[in-house]
Amino acid sequence: MQHIELLRKKQVGLRLPEYLVQELDELSAEYDLNRSEIIHEAIRAYLEEQKSRRFYSEFEQAAKELKAVVYGDACGQSLQDLIHELEDQ
Rank of each mutant, 00 (worst) to 15 (best):
S52H: 15
A45N: 01
K64D: 07
A68I: 07
H3G: 00
Y71S: 03
C75N: 10
D32N: 08
Y46V: 06
D73R: 13
E23W: 02
K51E: 08
C75I: 00
Y56M: 11
Q50E: 14
R8I: 01
P17K: 13
Y46W: 15
I38A: 02
E48D: 03
S36G: 12
A42I: 08
Y31V: 10
E5R: 15
Q80A: 10
L47T: 05
L20T: 03
S28W: 04
Y46S: 10
Y31G: 05
Y56W: 15
R44A: 01
Q22M: 13
A29G: 05
R35E: 03
L82N: 06
R35A: 02
E37L: 09
I83R: 00
Y46G: 04
H40K: 12
A42L: 05
K9N: 11
E41D: 04
Q11L: 13
R44W: 02
G76S: 10
E23S: 14
L47P: 01
A29D: 15
S52Y: 09
A63V: 10
G76A: 13
D81E: 15
S52P: 00
Y31K: 07
G76N: 10
S78I: 12
L24M: 03
F55Q: 07
A29C: 12
D32W: 06
A62K: 12
E30W: 00
Y46A: 09
E30G: 01
L7P: 04
R54G: 00
A45L: 07
E5Q: 08
A68Q: 09
G13C: 01
Q77W: 04
E5T: 13
